[in-house]
Amino acid sequence: MGRLLDNYHYAVAAVLFCTGFYSVIMRPNIIKKIIGLNIMETSVFLLLVSLGWKEGGIAPIHAGGAEAASMVNPLPQALILTGIVVAVSTTAVALSLVILLYRQYGTLDVDRLMREEELEVPAAGPEGGEG
């Protein structure tokens, strides 16, 4: 077992990662898939923040003569701030595609989207769109 119990934050991150991954590859609904992506992403953030934590640590802010030696690692926090932005941007792009897909196919179900693929005449000219 090693340090599994010491590292229970990491373990929870691993469980969340798998939950999100399950949602992405198994749930047929595309909004569910996007929620799954967000869960996967935050699980990695949780891992990173926990990596930077130190026993008895305080937030890395020098106000009021706080001691540098007892501060937690600021680097993962800076990275995750970037990560959060990445996550929300990806979500926005994905949702815009979802809206357009729904307008054109009338479904949010991936299996159904793929089934239409077979019926479709390949290489249709520019049609559809949102006019």
Binding site: T90, A94, L97, V98, L100, Q104, Y105, A124, G128, G129
Partner: peptide, 18 residues
């Protein structure tokens, strides 16, 4: 904005983002 293009892009995203 073509139908198949949007779907291809979404497929790309669904593999690319994970």
């Amino acid at each position: 904005g073509r139908r198949d293009a949007v779907r291809a892009a979404f497929k790309y995203l669904l593999m690319g983002a994970p």
